[in-house]
C-alpha cells in the first residue's frame, strides 16, 4: 500500500486515490495543432525514477494532487494540490508566476 499525504485529508491509503498521469504533460490550447495534441495525449516520457504525477483523492476530498514519487521504489517525496492557487493558499511560499 502506498500511503499518500493528502494536503486536505492527511495520510491515507493509496486505495482511496486514483492514479492520473504524468503531471509534466502540458496540454496545448484547445485550438492547438494536431501534432501538439498528439504528443500530449499519446506520448509519454515514462520515467524510471522520480516523477511528478497526478492523483485524485477519489474516495476522499476528490481533489487532484501532484505527487512526487519514485516509480522504481514507490517512495513518495512530496505531495501538493494540483491547482496552483490552492497550493499557494495552503503554502504561500510556493511562488506562482504572475502570468499564470
Amino acid at each position: 500500500m502506498l500511503r499518500i499525504q493528502c494536503p486536505f485529508c492527511g495520510l491515507r491509503d493509496h486505495s482511496e486515490f486514483s492514479y492520473g498521469s504524468d503531471a509534466s504533460v502540458e496540454y496545448p490550447p484547445l485550438d492547438g495543432s494536431q501534432e501538439a495534441w498528439h504528443d500530449a495525449v499519446f506520448q509519454r516520457e515514462n520515467i524510471d525514477g522520480v516523477q511528478f504525477e497526478t492523483w485524485q483523492h477519489t474516495l476522499g476530498c476528490r481533489m487532484w494532487i501532484v505527487v512526487e514519487r519514485n516509480t522504481r521504489t514507490h517512495d513518495i517525496l512530496s505531495v501538493r494540490p494540483a491547482h496552483d492557487g490552492i497550493a499557494q493558499a495552503l503554502n504561500p511560499s510556493l511562488m506562482i508566476e504572475p502570468d499564470q
Binding site: 486514483s18 492520473g20 503531471a23 497526478t54 476528490r62 487532484w64 494540490p81 494540483a82 491547482h83 496552483d84
Partner: peptide
C-alpha cells in the same frame, strides 16, 4: 465527473 474535475484542477485552473 473525474474528467471534469481534472480539467478544472489541472488544465483550466
Amino acid at each position: 465527473m473525474t474528467f471534469l474535475e481534472e480539467l478544472l484542477q489541472t488544465r483550466w485552473q
